[in-house]
Simulated scan of single mutants.
Amino acid sequence: MREKGTKKLHIYEGWAWREQAPEDKPDWMAETITQANVSKEGIEYLDEL
């Protein structure tokens, strides 16, 4: 993800998995839900364009 107005490029790793919804879920929620997580890996600097 590039930071607006700079030459910084932020690097992330993301992943997702499916699991059962909690027992106290609202009526509109599906039986299985997608959980996600993101981890920042670092910052890279772009060369002059």
Rank of each mutant, 00 (worst) to 15 (best):
1 M>V: 11
1 M>P: 07
2 R>T: 09
2 R>Y: 05
3 E>P: 03
3 E>D: 12
3 E>M: 11
4 K>N: 13
4 K>A: 14
4 K>M: 07
5 G>T: 01
6 T>P: 00
6 T>S: 03
6 T>G: 01
6 T>Q: 01
6 T>C: 00
7 K>L: 00
7 K>S: 01
11 I>H: 12
12 Y>I: 07
12 Y>M: 05
13 E>G: 07
13 E>F: 10
13 E>M: 08
14 G>R: 00
16 A>F: 07
17 W>S: 07
17 W>I: 03
18 R>Q: 14
18 R>H: 11
20 Q>F: 14
20 Q>E: 14
20 Q>H: 13
22 P>T: 02
22 P>W: 01
23 E>F: 12
23 E>R: 14
23 E>Q: 14
25 K>I: 09
26 P>I: 01
27 D>L: 13
27 D>P: 09
28 W>K: 08
30 A>L: 14
31 E>P: 02
31 E>W: 03
32 T>A: 10
32 T>N: 11
32 T>C: 06
34 T>A: 04
34 T>M: 04
35 Q>W: 09
35 Q>F: 06
36 A>L: 06
36 A>V: 10
36 A>W: 05
36 A>Q: 14
38 V>L: 10
38 V>H: 06
38 V>Q: 07
39 S>V: 15
39 S>W: 11
40 K>M: 09
40 K>A: 15
40 K>F: 15
41 E>C: 12
41 E>P: 04
42 G>I: 00
42 G>P: 02
43 I>C: 03
44 E>S: 10
44 E>H: 08
44 E>D: 09
45 Y>C: 04
45 Y>K: 02
45 Y>V: 07
45 Y>W: 06
46 L>Q: 02
46 L>N: 01
47 D>C: 07
47 D>A: 06
48 E>D: 12
49 L>N: 11
49 L>D: 11
49 L>V: 08
